[in-house]
């Protein structure tokens, strides 16, 4: 009867990202990585992608630590 922990997801605005990767450093589940693509500012933006991963494997809880440390308000956080 364990309580099911809440699920969440984040959206990273690639064009606002300056590639500081503070979000990457604080994510408890290492869900954020560095894109191979460049954005228009010339940075490799941080990326998060758990789409279509299936409920069992979905890890993001919407804890918002990444958004909290993001200097550029590039991350929106959603939670159920």
């Amino acid at each position: 009867m364990a309580t099911k922990s809440k699920r969440g997801f984040i959206k990273i605005a690639a064009e606002l990202c300056k590639g500081c990767y503070l979000c990457e450093s604080v994510c408890p589940f290492n869900l954020i990585s560095v894109s191979e693509k460049l954005n228009q500012k010339g940075y490799h933006p941080a990326v998060y992608d758990e789409e279509g991963i299936g409920i069992e494997k979905h890890k993001c809880k919407g804890c918002a630590l990444c958004a909290l440390v993001c200097p550029d308000i590039a991350i929106e956080v959603y939670r159920e």
Binding site: P71, I75, R79
Partner: peptide, 30 residues
């Protein structure tokens, strides 16, 4: 799903000019 973190009203919808990782923009937001 509901949005729990986003841009607050008292900030304009403008990208910060600060360098990557600068604390100023975090403090502006706070």
């Amino acid at each position: 799903m509901k949005q729990v973190f986003g841009r607050t009203e008292s900030l304009k919808d403008t990208a910060f000019h600060y360098c990557p990782g600068c604390g100023h923009s975090i403090i502006h937001r706070l």
